[in-house]
Amino acid sequence: MADRQTPVISAPHTEVLVTFTAAAGAPQLKESKRKIKVKSHKAFQAVVQHLQKLLDKKTLFVYINQISPSLDATIGQLAAFYGHVTAKGTYRLPLQYSVTPAWG
């Protein structure tokens, strides 16, 4: 835990690799659209809006670990809690999306 807390916050302009997976029968994205690099100071809301545009859906439920994060949390904060550190030392944040509520 201790080794996870400093890098994300202290370097607000690091990038987090965000990946999208369809859940609960949501339409799949093209292979090339399933990954996106996001600056860690960006709000989660920006990623949701990006996904809404990609899928052309107004209502979209986006989850991490079955939790729907606050839209005003930053990607860096979420990566610190729920992300994985890759071999290269970068962060990866897997998201699931669905068009109907999948988890409470």
């Binding site: 835990m1 201790a2 807390q5 994300v8 916050i9 005003d72 904060q77």
Partner: peptide, 11 residues
């Protein structure tokens, strides 16, 4: 607004 992992006890 700051949120990050932080323990309640040290090692």
């Amino acid at each position: 607004m700051v949120r990050e992992p932080f323990g309640v006890a040290d090692d």
